[in-house]
Write a protein that binds this DNA or RNA. Sequence first.
DNA 1: AGATGATGTTGACACCGTTCAGATGCACGC
DNA 2: GCGTGCATCTGAACGGTGTCAACATCATCT
Lengths: 211, 211
Amino acid sequence: MRESGNAQAKPYHHGDLSRALVEAARRILEAEGAVALSLRAVAREAGVSPAAPYHHFKDKTELLEAVAHGGWDALSHAIIEARRTAASPGEALESIGLAYVHFALQNPALYRLMYDTSRDRMAMPAHIKEEESGYSEVQCALVAAGADPNDDRELQLATIASWCAAHGLAEMCNFEQFRPLKEAMGGDEAFLRGVLRHFGTFSLAGLHGKR
Amino acid sequence: MRESGNAQAKPYHHGDLSRALVEAARRILEAEGAVALSLRAVAREAGVSPAAPYHHFKDKTELLEAVAHGGWDALSHAIIEARRTAASPGEALESIGLAYVHFALQNPALYRLMYDTSRDRMAMPAHIKEEESGYSEVQCALVAAGADPNDDRELQLATIASWCAAHGLAEMCNFEQFRPLKEAMGGDEAFLRGVLRHFGTFSLAGLHGKR
DNA sequence: AGATGATGTTGACACCGTTCAGATGCACGC
DNA sequence: GCGTGCATCTGAACGGTGTCAACATCATCT
């Protein structure tokens, strides 16, 4: 029995702990940062003993991967939404780039966790490259912006380049070194667009240009 | 006394522990990865008690920052060297990009540590932006490749864009999703050059192009 | 009803970062 | 030359962590 004495106080075993643990982890991640995200703290937050998670995840790592998985879903969704609501197909790329960076800035701990676990496995979660996911959305936006959909190799390279560039920008965009430039440009938004403009043009240049 | 029994075996107090600790940390980092990099393990490796480091670094974090600092120096050096030995000024950018990614691939744990500590402080170490450092080298390479040295704002944006792109590529380039494309292109090197080619052209496009 | 298996708890182990009181030995004033 | 001061190192301790084995509890199937 815990704080709620009236409703149903701590059912038989728990219900579904897996989900509760992942949610607890995300709550801790956003409220107190990655440094406070211990398995014991998650168990505590979910109102359960420190060993309980081991019946649902073989590892702390496995729990974190589940949390990261949710993050990738959210990011994919943000990308899809950005392309859908872009002013014109030609501007979809910039729209996606902005949405991507905004996601990273609004969920910094989660974003970092996503790439930490990905790098450990040397792979993004599989569903990111399937249909209707973030990756294919970028590909579509590139085509909409003028890329040749028949040259698969160049299209893939451009997609990868775009993704890498957005990732790098997302991770570095609030480094202190950039502050003077940001202020000179009148704010973060202008700065982001400025850098993204380079990314936006590069893809087309790379696809259309010589060689 | 440690492995070297003849020279001077464990001097008075130690000699200079700071340096020894940083070197021990780097050894552990490369041999066993970041997960094994505990303060106690570093002290153990340096042949000293677990509390000894606290007379030289106020924190584990401070030690790690010292290690990362050395990494930034090495990276800067690699960049300078890459530009110096480039076949032609116009190819300096691609040369730098390759050197950057190679550095990250050859020192993965160190590279990751460098950005982890940087993100925690939301800043790169200050000396990376000074003269004769990596950042200014990229800027020079951009100018050599045709960028307008008088438009400072665009030049800065291009430099940042290049850096972000290289960083993203360095972190993601051995994700498993890219393996088929790599094989189709005949190896990692070709793949890297393929993506870098997009980066290389983008900067110029961004600098010369409309808007 | 009784066995079974999934799920939760308790207690333990080794390790971690950090602190503090005390030992150690170099450097310097007399 | 020698004692004193001070930076440095050690040892033991505290609370926290990930993980595991042994035990408890409950849902369900026969």
